[in-house]
Design a protein around this nucleic acid. Structure first.
Lengths: 211, 211
DNA sequence: TTTAAGCTGTAACATTTGTTACACTTGGAT
DNA sequence: ATCCAAGTGTAACAAATGTTACAGCTTAAA
């Protein structure tokens, strides 16, 4: 089964032998929506390869303040949790399933081994790092240059893309946590967006009209 | 000459054959303080290897707003400017020499070539990516969780480390640009830090006392 | 020496964001 | 049906940051 899934999503990315190897050493895992995949400080020895779904990656301080960094989707991997020197080390971010997801996990030792063996793996790893860096840059731009109302609207439209639905089942409180602000601020700005005709508000539900 | 410098700074990082190859294909460049090394949008075909000095890496929007991300120092390389698929592509950040610096430039083609050939190069590239990602994470934490007075003090103490001097020759205006705020705000907060006894203010000069 | 440009300090005010408080609604548990 | 917890709307106020204006100082250039 893992083999078919792999072929479906990664056959253009990896050569056949690599696909075979992944199928052999990788483990398939189904993750339910809202399940915690890895927490800050978790040691981990496996590299995730996303098949379907989406994982929300966020950062938290000791004080408990939190902020969402980006989402992992099909074809993504999570490099940021790797430590120095190809050793496994502690994760600096948290990953929670944003929706039901399918992931293949690969033992970290393979990272370096395949690097020598497969050109497609080299490209994949380097590409992944670059994609991750660009996501981080985008997060920085958002934090540095946008006001809360813009950040909120970006958050909503990003989520529409990820969820593939213009109807978001979420509460103001959840959004406030993801953007590291307070519920009152979010309610205020959401109401403002509604008055501008960009969204419609319901209980536990937001419909994004203009995106 | 390039050979001696290399041996001095990278002999523990790379094996001898790789050092020899770098000396052969790399070009040495001396960069004066405040010189613009690469700008946003610049195409570039060389990977920098820092020998001495420091490069300030910053990000700018079309609107002209700017923010400092981090500094490159000895042993660092700048991966974020790499494009997808190991091809050279356009830089998304700006690099300006914070002080006189020495850099070796390596043609990008070598990146992949050496990846197969030299284990130490593989480790170096992966390590560099991880260091870069961690710097980005730190920038995000700073932006997301710290107020301007804390950001300012962090900026000053970071700069003390980079410049290896507790006396910083800079103006309020320059700091304001680096932190994407206004001069008045910086003057206000600097005065506050002075009153707290953490710094001393002079014209074109700030002395960091408590760090 | 005179002048102009840039640097710094500060006041006054505007805007944005955060906080506290409370009323009202909704939906599920008892 | 009643009750309770969670979600939402809004006011009132506090704190942080941004803006405009202007005065006095320093330094380099004319």
């Amino acid at each position: 089964m893992i083999k078919e899934k792999l072929e479906e999503y990664y056959n253009v990315v990896f050569e056949q032998e690599l696909l075979d190897e992944i199928a052999e050493v990788g483990t398939y895992r189904f993750v339910k929506e809202n399940e915690l995949l890895l927490d800050i400080g978790d040691q981990f020895h496996q590299i995730p390869l996303m098949l379907t779904g989406a994982i929300k990656i966020s950062r938290e301080t000791k004080a408990g303040e939190e902020i969402v960094l980006y989402f992992l989707e099909r074809g993504d991997t999570c490099t940021i949790t790797f430590g120095s020197g190809l050793q496994s080390s502690k994760s600096k971010v948290r990953g929670v399933a944003e929706k039901d997801s399918e992931i293949i996990f690969i033992p970290v030792e393979k990272l370096e081994e395949w690097m020598v063996k497969y050109p497609s793996w080299r490209s994949f790893v380097i590409d992944s790092y670059n994609i991750r860096l660009n996501e981080m840059l985008e997060a920085i731009d958002t934090l540095a240059f946008m006001k809360m109302d813009q950040r909120l609207f970006k958050y909503l439209t990003d989520k529409v893309q990820i969820m593939r639905s213009t109807t978001l089942n979420t509460t103001h409180q959840e959004i406030a946590v993801d953007l590291n602000t307070s519920r009152v601020v979010i309610s205020r700005l959401l109401k403002q967006l509604e008055n501008e005709g960009k969204i419609k508000l319901y209980r536990n539900k937001i419909e994004v009209v203009d995106f």
